[in-house]
Amino acid sequence: MSDKETCGDFEIYKDEENWWVVKDTRDNKIIGKFQKKDDALEKVAVFLQDDEERLESESTC
């Protein structure tokens, strides 16, 4: 397993089977495994930007 690299709540590392693993450290959940590191980084970027979850239609004046 390679050294973990972290960005906020997310970490990536290479496991014993040579997959790049993306983990959400808030619940220790593995979000995905990727062959290329770049794909793993892209996944982290998508989660950080998190467009749909951030949508808010309710607002007070």
Binding site: D51, R54, E56, S57, C61
Partner: peptide
Amino acid sequence: SDYLARFIDRIISRKRYYKRCL
């Protein structure tokens, strides 16, 4: 309805508001 809290909350939550109000 505090305006400072309104912006603090939105900066922390990064909620994306597309309506001013209802």
